[in-house]
Computed example of a mutant assay.
Amino acid sequence: MVSKYNHPEYHEAVFRLTCELDMPDRVLHPIRNLIGCSLGRVFWLDWLRQDSRDAEWMATPGDHEDPEWHRIDGWPERGDGTTSRKWSRRATLWMQWHSVDAWHITDWLITATAEGHPWLANVDAAGYPKKLMKCGTLERLVHEATKGLRQRNPREIMLGPDDESFVLALGAGHTLVQLFSRAALRKEGLLMHHCIGQGAYDDLLDDPDVGFFSIRNLDGKPVATLEIRGGYLRQFRGPANAQPTDAVKDLVAPAIEAFGWQDWRDRPRPTQDEGYGPEAIAILTNLPPARRRS
């Protein structure tokens, strides 16, 4: 019997999931193997379980009253390319449902690699870190990621006007601040326990179409981080990549309207993606009410 990890579609499945994570090669390359034996493996196992129930159609998880049904077999009647269509579709759906957790885990892997965490050297006979291989579910990976990010040691980083700048008063003592420098990203990441300061976003600081923003409370502490690309709100995260509170979402909603930032799903998509449904990123579950789709 063919091992589930030697299945002819396994590498295609992991590849398609990796594409959906939307990371530059410079960031992806050092953690590619870690992605494969953690998120990729769990992603594959999730779909094996689904295929044992129904390999053609799947309802949106957790939607019990009037679920939306999704075709997941790759449309074999279209001819060649069924496998790539199937796993592209499945990767898009899985990220729609689990993107917040997936990016949280990815942040942890980036941080652990950049900082040389000792667990990376404790590997099994195949060379995979035992800490990752013992995690058989997404929930377990999230648990380990949260612990790993909280173990980082924030240190004081002095910032000036060239590093960050006030943008807008949001009310209730909260402000919107734009982050301009590597030092600003580093401090934001340390205080928020996510990987914005670990180098993955450094190259984007010089891109005029990309902006990083921090929501600060009355004491000047960050409570949420935003990433804007080309006028589209791509990420909106609270501490440790959790969803921002409803109160913070409500405070940010007028700013989103004022600057004309749009839902990431509404950005132009390549024509070859037509028919696959809207891509869903972490931000989609975090959008303030003013920008939610009906």
Results as ranks from 00 to 15, higher is better:
Leu132Gln: 02
Leu218Arg: 13
Asn241Lys: 04
Pro268His: 09
Lys147Gly: 08
Trp119Leu: 10
Val100Asp: 08
His98Lys: 12
Asp46Ile: 05
Asp207Cys: 00
Lys86Ile: 06
Gln50Lys: 14
Ala255Ile: 05
Leu132Met: 05
Arg41Thr: 08
Thr83Asn: 03
Val27Thr: 15
Ala13Gly: 08
Leu39Ile: 10
Arg49Gly: 09
Arg85Phe: 05
His194Pro: 05
Asn241Arg: 07
Leu284Ile: 15
Leu176Tyr: 02
Arg89Ser: 10
Tyr10Asp: 08
Gly81Leu: 04
Cys19Glu: 13
Thr113Arg: 06
Trp75Ile: 09
Thr146Lys: 13
Tyr10Pro: 07
Arg152Tyr: 05
Pro61Leu: 03
Ala247His: 12
Phe166Trp: 11
Trp103Thr: 10
Leu204Gly: 00
Pro118Thr: 07
Ser99Thr: 03
Lys187Ala: 07
Ala55Tyr: 06
Val142Leu: 03
Pro118Gln: 10
Ser165Leu: 11
Lys86Gly: 04
His11Ile: 14
Phe166Tyr: 13
Asp63Arg: 15
Leu204Thr: 02
Ala145Ser: 15
Cys195Phe: 07
Ile35Leu: 15
Glu274Thr: 07
Ala224Asp: 00
Arg269Asn: 09
Arg267Met: 14
Ile228Ser: 02
Ser84Trp: 12
Lys249Met: 08
Asn33Arg: 13
Pro24Val: 01
Phe213Gln: 00
Gly160Ile: 06
Tyr128His: 11
Glu279Pro: 11
Leu251Cys: 05
Ile157Cys: 03
Phe212Ala: 01
Lys187Val: 08
Leu233Asn: 01
Pro67Val: 07
Asn6Val: 10
Ala55Asn: 11
Asp73Pro: 07
Gly199Cys: 06
Ala282Gln: 03
Ala112Lys: 02
Thr175Trp: 06
Ala126Tyr: 06
Gly199Thr: 04
Pro254Thr: 01
Ile157Pro: 04
Glu9Ser: 10
Pro288Asp: 05
Ala102Val: 09
Ala145Trp: 00
Gly277Pro: 05
Thr18Lys: 14
Leu284Tyr: 12
Gly220Ser: 08
His11Thr: 15
Tyr232Asp: 02
Ala169Met: 10
Ala247Pro: 07
Arg291Ser: 14
Gly160Arg: 06
Pro118Glu: 12
Pro244Thr: 04
Tyr201Thr: 00
Lys130Arg: 10
Asp124Val: 06
Ala91Asp: 02
Glu12Met: 14
Leu93His: 02
Arg150Gly: 14
Gly211Glu: 01
Ala59Cys: 10
Asp66Gln: 15
Gly36Thr: 11
Arg292Pro: 01
His7Gln: 07
Leu251Trp: 03
Leu168Trp: 08
Leu191Asp: 11
Leu34Met: 08
Leu132Cys: 05
Pro24Thr: 00
Asp80Leu: 14
Phe236Asp: 00
Asp263Ser: 10
Gly238Ile: 00
Arg291Phe: 10
Arg291Gln: 14
Asp63Tyr: 11
Ala125Arg: 13
Gly189Gln: 04
Asp266Asn: 10
Trp57Phe: 12
Glu68Met: 14
Leu141Tyr: 04
His143Ile: 13
Ser3Ala: 14
Asp219Cys: 07
